[in-house]
C-alpha cells in the first residue's frame, strides 16, 4: 500500500561534509498502515538512472540514529528501533562527489514483513530533483 507515495521529494539532495559531497540522500515512507521495527524491512533496493545501488553503500537515518543498511538485515538486529508510520526514513547513498545537481530517475523497491500475511512489496519510480 501507499506504493506511489513511498518515494518522496522531501530533502532530496547531496550530503556534504567539510565542503565536499560524500553522497546523496532520499527520504522514503513506509508501505504499510503502521510503523514496523527496522528488522522487519526485508529489502530496500534503489536504482538511480538505471544503475542499481550497492547495498553496502547505503546508510539509514531515522529518529536521530544511523545504521548501515546491511546491519538491519542481520538476524540479531534489535527489534525496538522502529520506522514510525508516515515518517521519513532517510536513505543515504555514499558516493564521493555525490550526484550531479538536477533531475534523476529513481526507482525504489521496498519489501516489508508484517505479522500475519506474506511480505509486502511496493515499487515506486519517479524523476526527482536533487539539490
Amino acid at each position: 500500500m501507499y506504493d506511489s507515495h513511498i518515494l518522496t521529494e522531501h530533502d532530496c539532495r547531496n550530503m556534504w561534509e567539510h565542503g565536499k559531497k560524500y553522497g546523496y540522500g532520499v527520504d522514503i515512507t513506509i508501505n504499510y498502515y503502521r510503523g514496523l521495527p527496522l528488522s522487519c524491512v526485508e529489502e530496500i533496493a534503489l536504482e538511480v538512472d538505471g544503475e542499481p545501488i550497492d547495498p553496502a553503500d547505503m546508510i539509514l537515518r531515522i529518529s536521530g540514529k544511523e545504521f548501515p543498511y546491511t546491519d538491519i538485515l542481520q538476524d540479531d538486529f534489535p527489534t525496538d528501533f522502529y520506522w514510525p508510520f508516515g515518517e521519513y526514513l532517510r536513505v543515504i547513498v555514499l558516493k564521493d562527489g555525490g550526484i550531479p545537481q538536477g533531475r534523476h530517475h529513481v526507482k525504489l523497491t521496498l519489501k516489508t514483513r508484517r505479522s500475519y500475511t506474506p511480505t509486502m512489496v511496493a515499487v515506486c519510480e519517479k524523476d526527482l530533483t536533487f539539490a
Binding site: 514496523l36 528488522s39 538485515l73 538476524d75 514483513r113 500475519y116
Partner: peptide, 11 residues
C-alpha cells in the same frame, strides 16, 4: 496489539 513473529529474515 500485533503479533510480529517474523521479526527477522531467517529467524
Amino acid at each position: 496489539h500485533w503479533s510480529d513473529r517474523a521479526m527477522w529474515k531467517n529467524k
